[in-house]
Each structure stands twice: as structure tokens, then as C-alpha cells.
Amino acid sequence: MINFNIAQWRAWAPGLDSVDAWRDWCQAPTLLAQSDAAPDVSFLPAMQRRRLSRLARMAFSVGWPLAEGLQDLPLVFVSRHGETPRTLDILSDLANDQPLSPTQFSLSVHNAVIGLWSILRNETSEMTALAAAGDGLEHGMLEAAALLNEGAPAVLLVITEEQPPPAYTRWINDVPFPYALGLLLTPGDEWQLALHTATVQPTETQWPHALNLLRTLLDEQGACQHAWKNRVWNWQRKP
């Protein structure tokens, strides 16, 4: 069991870029229309932002305002599927015997986003890039809690998923639309997260855990339960 406070949050999905927009969505969650929209990251210099994929832009757009004014802020970056459009481009080039784009290749590793984050923010704190299963959010929380326990005054957790290209739809069914959630976590006991083992097959939530947690946050609910395989995660807000 771990304890922590969620000091602040930011989220982005196509068309949902304000607290009010998320509040509306959380009250009546619906599937968002397919969109190529990407968040505004004009706070980054043009020469630096040009190589950022939408996934990276989503991560920066939710993480940047949360990191404002904070130095030595460890980062836990979570994405189950990562840069699927980039991966497909690279694999397509390989399949067609074409030389690989050095830019695509250099940004194809899972920790590319945190590398860019480190460079652009001049941040040298510990950073981790995780790819877990459907409960990556909770695994990221464990990592963040460990960093808080080591004495970090705050930890930034960013979880983001990109809409996979159609070639992947047979295998990826847990990304209803592109989204990113950033959580600024601090030591405290406002929230409690505990892992249990399911004795019967638990039901998976309709929405990704990150979005479901946001619903719990915004609807002022006291708790939510996320299950993946035989792992059942109980989120509990202090009454």
C-alpha cells in the first residue's frame, strides 16, 4: 500500500484542453472523434519542438505547466504502446529496404521523451520510462511512491498513449483516443493505493485507468477500482 497527495493535474486529448472541458467529459464520458489535433507546445523553441511527435507534444503539454518553478523534479513517464506511428514508419522503411531516417531512429526508443525533457528543461533528476500492461498508471505510481519515499519533495508522473495506426488495431484495443495525463505527486496521505489479487476474474474498466482516475478526481468520488489481469488496484481518497 502506498500513500501520496495529488497536488495538481493536467490532461489533454483532442478537443479537451481545459479543466472545464475535462469536467464535462468526466460527467458524460464519450468516445472522441478521430483527430490529428496536437496540443500547443509553443513554449518550446521552434527548432526544438519540430521533431516532437504528437505523443511527445502531449507529454510536454501536460508536464510542462506542472513542472513550472520546480527544480530537481524526478519524472516517471508511462506509456504502454509508445510511439506506434514512428515505429510503423521505421518498420515500413525496413520492409521496403529503404534507409532509416536518422531522426525517426534517434527518437524511437521508449525513453526518447524523457531524454528530450531532460535536455529542454536542463533537468538532471532521476527519470524513468515505463511500459507496463494496461495498469501502467499504477506501476508508475509505485515508482513515483518509491521516489517520494527516498525524499523527493515532488514527483511528476506523465502517462500518455497515442492512437495506434490501423495496422495495430488487431492487437491494441485499450487506446480509445490519444490522451495524456500529468500528475504532480507529493508526500502525504490524501490518497491511498493498494494492490489486491482477484479471486474471480475482475471486470476491466471501460476507459483507460488514467482517464478513469481523472473521473474520480473531478467527480469528487472517494474511490475507484482498476483491475488488470489478476491485479486489482484500489484507489482510496481520505474522507
Binding site: 527548432m47 534507409p99 531516417s101 536518422p102 531522426t103 534517434s106
Partner: peptide, 17 residues
């Protein structure tokens, strides 16, 4: 223009293609 080493590789590839 302010290009970097990754740009050099990318531009070299684009010119060759």
C-alpha cells in the same frame, strides 16, 4: 541556420534519395 548532427544525417539521406 542552427542545424545539428542529427539534421546532418537526415539531410545527407534526403540528398542521396
Amino acid at each position: 541556420l542552427g542545424l545539428d548532427s542529427v539534421d546532418a544525417l537526415e539531410l545527407g539521406l534526403a540528398i542521396q534519395k
